[in-house]
Design a protein around this nucleic acid. Structure first.
Lengths: 198, 198
DNA sequence: CTTGGTTTTGAACGATTGTTCAGTTAAATC
DNA sequence: GATTTAACTGAACAATCGTTCAAAACCAAG
């Protein structure tokens, strides 16, 4: 048993995934070749297959890891009463997505490039995330802090609105991330809270 | 000069564009081959080049036509005071996008597959559409009917929220398009109007 | 230094890509 | 019916695709 310490395996593996994440986000799954990924890593195309079974699995793993991480993180970000948890959700979503724009882009854009069974799995995770917000809205209606005609629809509206931040926000612009979080929380609060626009 | 009336040119041409629209939306620009498009039309791949110079131009034309049509249509959909025009915008955006899901999908997802100069042109049209809403918001602030901290940000938020409808709404579901328009207008009104949540 | 096993190379596989074009088909005009 | 021209076929082009694999390179343990 040799070559376990100085092994490149635990270095190259993550680099393959990082390169794929970057290139898939930039150009799209179908438009990126295995040779491009290999080139980004500094290796020949054949070497990639020491770390992944095939291209499709590479895409699926990237998306699954992102969604699982998202679901894990959101649970820990919420606390207190429904109105407070709604604010937590808004601020969390914006910050989490801002930190990993490539993974977000892929998770939303490459669904159609997944094989059916892989698609079903990712779709299930996405629904799980939507349900987290939906549950907050229902709880807020129940305790009177929120006024929401249709929690399912409102959850979709809020998530779409928040995810849209990634398409235009840059930390180098005139607004800080905190500014954006404040603005969006203000808009969501006015949109859904029982307290009116105060 | 023969073969000008019974010509297939004015039949096949639109069918090529329709097939490309459908397939690009379904599988993505890079994942669709010219032979697939030709197959959908019922013709050999070579015949496509009687109607388009190349694949890239086909994508660009589809996106440009969609954006120009969008900009033309939105102007005619707005009337009256800012608050009324905001409602018009919300209802228009939902209905217009619902009527052409494939074109919407392509216009939002295939930007990265455009050559730089093509990208700049489409991006300009998109900015034009955003400006239409932004102007409404500014006018609403000016006449006191709206309370908007940052019109640019609010415009992006509203458009993202409205466009998100296309990802989940189906006319066969429990809600009619009119239901959805009402719900979203209600949410946007509460979010931005000066009147509070009444 | 030799051995043993991990990692990578580099070439090759058949399939498919966008695009071109000479030749065939078909329809309208004379 | 002959002519003309638009529409299309079908084969071909070089390039690239994802993937495989024997051989070479490499490094740690004995």
């Amino acid at each position: 048993m040799a070559r376990t310490q100085g092994s490149h395996s635990d270095i190259t593996g993550p680099r393959v995934r990082a390169a794929a994440l970057k290139l898939f986000a930039r150009h799209g799954y179908a438009a990126v070749s295995m040779r491009q990924i290999a080139g980004e890593v500094g290796v020949q195309a054949g070497a990639l297959y020491n770390y992944i079974p095939d291209k499709q699995s590479l895409l699926f793993d990237l998306m699954q890891d992102h969604m699982v991480e998202l679901l894990d993180a959101v649970e820990g970000a919420l606390s207190g009463a429904p109105l407070q948890r709604l604010e937590d959700f808004v601020r969390f979503h914006i910050a989490f997505h801002h930190d990993r724009p490539d993974a977000v882009f892929i998770a939303y854009m490459e669904l159609r490039n997944l094989e059916p069974s892989n698609f079903a799995q990712i779709e299930g995770l996405r629904r799980g995330y939507e349900t987290v917000l939906e549950d907050i809205l229902r709880a807020g209606v129940a305790d009177g802090s929120l006024v929401v005609a249709d929690p399912k629809v409102a959850a979709m509206a809020v998530i779409a609105m928040l995810t849209g931040v990634n398409t235009w926000f840059s930390a180098e612009g005139r607004l800080s991330l905190r500014d954006v979080q404040d603005m969006y929380w203000n808009m969501v609060r006015r949109m859904l809270s029982a307290g009116g626009s105060v």
